[in-house]
């Protein structure tokens, strides 16, 4: 296998990067980790004339807690930087766990959160939990910057809402009222396998310590069972305002089974994926309540 020839740039400022994107338009691709991009180029699915590395942009790998606001993660932070981030672990270990379930160690050292998002692969592991926690994406463009809900980035399988001259620079997870969250994937091997189904759950609960656990608010997101990460609004409606019981979880699972929109491929059939979404929604609800954000 080989990579077709391309010119390479490593701009050191966002404006420089945007200028290059503006100049080369569709001929250019942004490279960050490259673990998704380079295989696609080897398979000749993409043949950019120009690669623009964003690794040298200032603060692009920074992970920090902005007091009173939330966690900011630079687009070029690698999966392992997230897995081992004290900032993220102290607040939302569920995000770290999701990152740790991804690919292989060698890939997690290179692949980035930004790449995991803009590649918009339906089975990506980070988007479901980030969306469940209400994350936003900061997108830089020529002379402007916009912040949008993360779920709006995804417009279709491997399609995102970024213009050719825009750049994802930061993911922000706001402080919120969610008391527990979790992400679990079902894959066909214990390491290095894509999610056949991924389910993320974030809940705001009340009274759980007193044994009368009620669910005040819920965000449920399914991965790998729709063209984009999919909010489980009907399943959310089932659990919102209810006491946290096995029956409620079971019912949410049934609703999840019918509201997801999976396809059949060589990894799993539509029917099997539906079943898994149901089972995993049920299990994730239970686990989130039992384990908090762990």
């Amino acid at each position: 296998m080989y990579l077709p020839d391309f010119d390479y740039y490593a701009p050191e400022s966002v404006s420089e990067a945007l200028d290059l994107l503006t100049e080369h338009k569709e001929n250019a691709k942004v490279i960050c980790g490259g673990t998704d991009l380079l295989p696609k180029m080897k398979h000749e699915l993409l043949a950019p004339k120009v690669l623009i590395s964003i690794k040298k942009l200032p603060n692009i790998k920074k992970i920090e807690y902005v007091k009173g606001k939330g966690i900011s993660i630079g687009a070029a932070a690698t999966h392992n930087e997230i897995v081992f981030s004290e900032v993220v672990n102290s607040k939302y270990p569920s995000i770290c766990n999701a990152a740790a379930q991804m690919a292989a160690n060698q890939v997690r050292h290179v692949g980035t959160i930004g790449g995991n998002i803009v590649s918009a692969v339906p089975s990506a592991d980070l988007p479901p939990i980030l969306i469940a926690l209400g994350a936003t994406a900061k997108i830089a463009g020529p002379g402007k910057e916009r912040v949008i809900p993360l779920e709006d980035v995804f417009t279709g399988p491997q399609q995102n809402c970024l213009e050719a001259n825009e750049l994802l620079t930061e993911i922000f997870i706001p402080d919120g009222d969610m008391t527990c969250s979790t992400y679990h994937k079902f894959a066909l091997r214990r390491a290095g396998a894509l999610a056949v189904v991924g389910v993320a759950v974030a809940l705001q609960t009340k009274g759980c310590a007193d044994g009368a656990c009620s669910i005040e608010d819920a965000r449920i997101v399914y991965g790998a069972v729709a063209p984009t990460p999919m909010r489980g609004v009907k399943a959310e409606a089932v659990v919102k305002g209810k006491m946290a019981t096995d029956d409620v979880f079971e019912e949410a699972g049934k609703v999840a089974y019918s509201e997801c929109k999976p396809i059949s491929d060589f990894r799993a059939s539509e029917e099997y994926r539906r079943n898994l979404v149901g089972v995993y929604t049920k299990r994730c609800l239970k686990r989130a309540i039992e384990n908090g954000h762990k």
Partner: peptide
């Protein structure tokens, strides 16, 4: 000092 797949890394990087 970090393990990586050298088939997915550009030498220039």
């Amino acid at each position: 000092d970090r393990p990586v797949n050298s088939c997915l890394i550009l030498a220039i990087e």
